[in-house]
């Protein structure tokens, strides 16, 4: 009984109350002692009849209690934190000082954040772009349709509305040019690979919903998208492996940093931004097309 109580309690706290295990255990037991209505059986009966309403109410109470406790604890913690906007906070230490004061000289990047994420802390960013890759592979694993007739793809194809078409015609060139600008200027101005990829991905999504899948498939076939992702990610991993290897073994990379502020400057940051931008574009578009029609 203790065990029953605990599992019940736990499942209730867990918020995903189920009767899976108990249900399955039951039929086997019924064969041995099916005459006496045990406490367990009465509990199950009660649970089946009144359970849903009871647990709905319990959910409500539990969520309010947990929410308030959590918020109170966190607020007390927040009250101990250093003051907002104060330049003497512990976060403004020698780390950010070096990023700001030496960043331009050491990475060649005018945009300090780009310099930080793609040079000083590049290992995080390497992982981050692979998180995106993981997600796109996972979505592909789930959403990819089995190969069937063609007519099903056409059924989900968006209606070619005249308003959407006209607006898309005007706006898509600007979006694409702006995306490319963000990608190529990531080391000079706000922007960088991730935001550029989001903008270009949006342009592709708009294109495919305005003009249909057939049009966009003239260039962006599944193979094309896979090859672009593959090339960018392999380039990224390879170049960063080289950079980590030389850094740890104290070998100079031999890559010129160039004149700060020029478009061809800041060493590896520009090619990395391009690679990241392409990966993000392809991932965003493939999310959309996998969700809407089950294939790229």
């Amino acid at each position: 009984m203790m065990n029953k109580f605990f599992t019940g309690l736990v499942k209730f706290v867990d918020g995903e109350f189920t009767i899976t295990t108990k249900r399955k255990a039951k039929p086997a037991r019924r064969h041995t002692d099916h005459h006496e209505p045990t406490f367990k059986e009465r509990f199950t009966q009660w649970h089946d009849e009144k359970g849903p309403a009871f647990f709905k109410a319990a959910y409500g109470i539990a969520s309010i209690v947990i929410c308030l406790t959590m918020i109170t604890i966190l607020l007390i913690t927040a009250s101990f934190l250093p003051e907002y906007g104060n330049p003497d906070n512990p976060v403004n230490n020698e780390v950010s000082e070096r990023y700001i004061e030496k960043g331009l000289e050491e990475t060649g990047s005018v945009n300090i954040v780009s310099g930080m994420i793609l040079d000083y802390r590049a290992f995080d960013t390497l992982g981050e772009s692979h998180v995106l890759f993981t997600a796109s592979a996972a979505v592909m694993l789930l959403m990819k349709k089995e190969k069937r007739g063609k007519e099903q793809t056409d059924r989900f194809s968006p209606k070619r509305d005249i308003i959407v078409k006209t607006v898309a015609q005007i706006i898509i060139p600007f979006l694409l040019v702006y995306g490319v600008y963000l990608m190529l200027n990531g080391h000079l101005s706000p922007g960088g690979g991730f935001s550029a990829g989001a903008v270009m991905g949006a342009a592709l999504i708009l294109f495919s919903s305005a003009f249909g899948y057939k049009k966009i498939k003239t260039v962006f076939t599944e193979k094309f998208i896979k090859i672009v992702t593959l090339a960018s990610l392999l380039f990224y991993a390879g170049i960063k492996c080289y950079s980590f290897y030389t850094g740890a073994n104290h070998i100079p990379t031999g890559i010129p940093l160039g004149q700060p502020g020029a478009i061809l400057s800041s060493g590896l940051i520009l090619p990395l931004n391009i690679a990241v931008g392409l990966v993000v574009t392809c991932t965003m578009y493939s999310f959309y097309s996998l969700f809407s029609k089950g294939e790229i």
């Binding site: 330049p87 976060v91 403004n92 780390v95 950010s96 000082e97 990023y99 700001i100 004061e101 030496k102 960043g103 331009l104 000289e105 005018v110 945009n111 300090i112 954040v113 930080m116 994420i117 802390r121 995080d124 960013t125 981050e128 772009s129 998180v131 995106l132 101005s189 706000p190 960088g192 991730f194 700060p260």
Partner: peptide, 27 residues
């Protein structure tokens, strides 16, 4: 934290690290 006119003084810019972390978090 975008260097303007070549001024690289700690007193001029905000802390760049949280911005980078937010970027990672969003992705």
């Amino acid at each position: 934290p975008i260097v303007v006119n070549g001024v690289t003084d700690m007193e001029t810019y905000i802390n760049p690290i949280p911005s980078g972390l937010v970027l990672t978090g969003i992705v």
